[in-house]
Design a protein around this nucleic acid. Structure first.
Lengths: 364, 364
DNA sequence: CTGAAAGCGCTTACAG
DNA sequence: CTGAAAGCGCTTACAG
């Protein structure tokens, strides 16, 4: 007596004990149970789990403790139905490299862990007639909280437009900025291939071939441009007949690798726009009975597992895929937060020098 | 007139036109709308979308057409909330090989495409203290329709027990049968390494080393046992000092590969229990200046991308991962169906002969 | 800072 | 074969 507050009269620990006693069939508690035990309305419990500032601090602490004690976990489906937004984050991808896809997933999951959000994966085929329709349906029906887009679907303006139209938060991962800053993770691929070019130039290579990536990927343009820029710093240009069109697959690297061997005069180095194609070139050399990098230095891009499995191990520009996924997810959760300080939204490739590059042999 | 049926009086095409006219704000239709337009109760619409047999055929056809015409898509969250079961399939995995994980995912998604179900990925760490607790929470809170478990979590009996307790359908992918047939996809790894052993024996190898897989994986035991069985058919046994304990990583293969080179007398062939370790052995040989398979034949297991990236390309027993994922998902959907004929529930490895194996050199 | 009422879009349980 | 009522577990919109 004497104290005016009625709220502090609620003994939350006793409430938790009461629950333990009365709940014989070990039913999971609902918001209704929490409200009853804490002697508040469901709305107040709702405010607590949604971090609303409009709750008395003592009440908040008490309810949070009670929630912990009785093991209450809000039902994401019910919250989703009522708020018209699910607790699902979608990852829409069309990347041909499994190592990339898994690492992006792991990065996203690093952020989702210990949140109520789950990751729903959605590979797609951008060339399909129903690609946009399917994507819209997925986003709309699942009422996704947000979507993370990897190259090359991230580069599709029509898909971004659909996301905006549906009011769905999204983050685009791409080699260059294609959208407002808060919607992008930029990987600056150009920088990586510039480094690759400088590395080869400094080793003394001047007759250099290039295998471009798949046309439908913006990174293909960026990686090629960066490489040519890097060489230009040393006054080196690549003649058109030393430029080949790959598609980012091992098989294309293998096929183009043997074409490169037939060039006359042959180049002393080749830049393949990703590790898979670089691995293909190495294999073409082995098939031809050569021992790289003796007659031909090879540089890749990505530094995924393949880079260290092949022999010689690849000199390559690293794409920090897991970190990229992590940044994308962090950025996604900042999207609705105006005041939250924005974190990093770009990564820079770093050249990893290994055994697939060396100085060119003196011409005989 | 003269016809008694009242249902056939409903003009579903006209109803669809009516919707197009009245729905000026382009709202997505709900079950309530469908019911009103078709002049039936929501319950009847519900029966149609859930394929209940208790619906008049003409009514069913009409409603199905109407649903198509106006683009009605049932809300999975609402269905989930009411039925206490979501439309999410979980994939719980702890496999260290990205190529495996992605291919299983793709196989599952092959089956989920054009269904209302979505795939939620959930990598985990079986050694974590909270592993079981976390898994239970995930399954319970998301009210998963079902779960697909890959090795080695698939081999955890405590997790399977939790799934049964929660009444959640699950499929375990494992190298041997660990559960009732309707809950298993068996990959018969033992058969693959038997083939590998016979292949080496037939080439004339007799002094053979083995690198076992990670102890916590049942496949490690199976692959080893199969290999020893296969050799036994030819009267060959592996001395203990020719048996090494790996952990399924490239790094372990690399480290053990150089140990194998130091054996005296050295073996003429080695079986690594997966491709990653086999790739490590090949690299150890290259580092030592050797040119496999001249002095040492190497056999792997899995035939994931790595197998064809390395040089020489690996002779290996194929694990059809995408197909395994597909079978697991198909089996999951058969789980609640008593009458549905059960599909295949096992796969068999097949040895793919490539360049990493040859006849042993004559001893000098 | 708090709550009572209505509703999100379905299914369950029951009745006929 | 069909439907009216109640309810799943939350949030919204409003009032105080």
């Amino acid at each position: 007596m004497g104290r005016k507050s009625r709220k502090s009269d609620v003994d939350y620990k006793a409430a938790a004990r009461q629950w333990a006693e009365e709940n014989e069939d070990a039913r999971n508690p609902t918001m209704k149970d929490v409200a009853r035990l804490a002697r508040v309305s469901k709305k107040t419990v709702s405010r607590v789990i949604n971090d609303s500032p409009l709750v008395n601090e003592a009440t908040r602490k008490g309810i949070q403790g009670l929630i912990r004690d009785i093991g209450y976990r809000p039902d994401p489906q019910a919250r989703g139905l009522a708020s018209r937004q699910s607790f699902l984050v979608g990852m829409i991808s069309d990347n041909p490299t499994p190592q990339y896809v898994v690492n992006i997933q792991l990065g996203i999951l690093d952020v989702l862990r210990n949140t109520p959000y789950e990751l729903v994966v959605h590979p797609c085929d951008r060339k399909s007639d129903t690609f946009l329709e399917d994507a819209r349906k997925f986003i709309e029906v699942q009422k996704l909280y947000g979507v993370i887009l990897t190259p090359s679907v991230s580069e599709d303006e029509r898909l971004a437009e659909i996301l905006r139209e549906l009011g769905c938060a999204y983050i685009r991962i791409a080699s260059i900025a294609l959208d407002m800053e808060s919607r992008m993770i930029v990987t600056n691929d150009r920088v990586g291939s510039q480094q690759a070019a400088r590395h080869l130039a400094k080793l003394g290579h001047t007759r250099i071939a290039l295998i471009a990536g798949r046309r439908s990927f913006r990174s293909a343009t960026e990686r090629r441009a960066g490489f040519e820029e890097g060489l230009a710093e040393f006054g080196i240009t690549i003649p058109p007949e030393y430029i080949f069109q790959g598609d980012y697959t091992f098989e294309s690297g293998l096929a183009l690798g043997s074409q490169i061997l037939d060039l006359d005069p042959p180049p002393t180095a080749v830049f393949a726009s990703n590790d898979e194609m670089a691995a293909g070139v190495l294999q073409a050399l082995h098939v031809a009975g050569q021992t790289p990098p003796d007659s031909l230095s090879v540089v890749g891009f990505d530094d995924f597992e393949t880079a260290t499995r092949v022999w010689p191990r690849l000199t390559t520009a690293r794409t920090p895929a897991r970190r990229i996924g992590k940044l994308a997810a962090e950025r996604l959760f900042e999207f609705y937060d105006d005041d939250k300080e924005q974190g990093e939204n770009e990564t820079t490739p770093r050249l990893i020098e290994r055994d697939s590059t060396r100085r060119p042999r003196r011409s005989p």
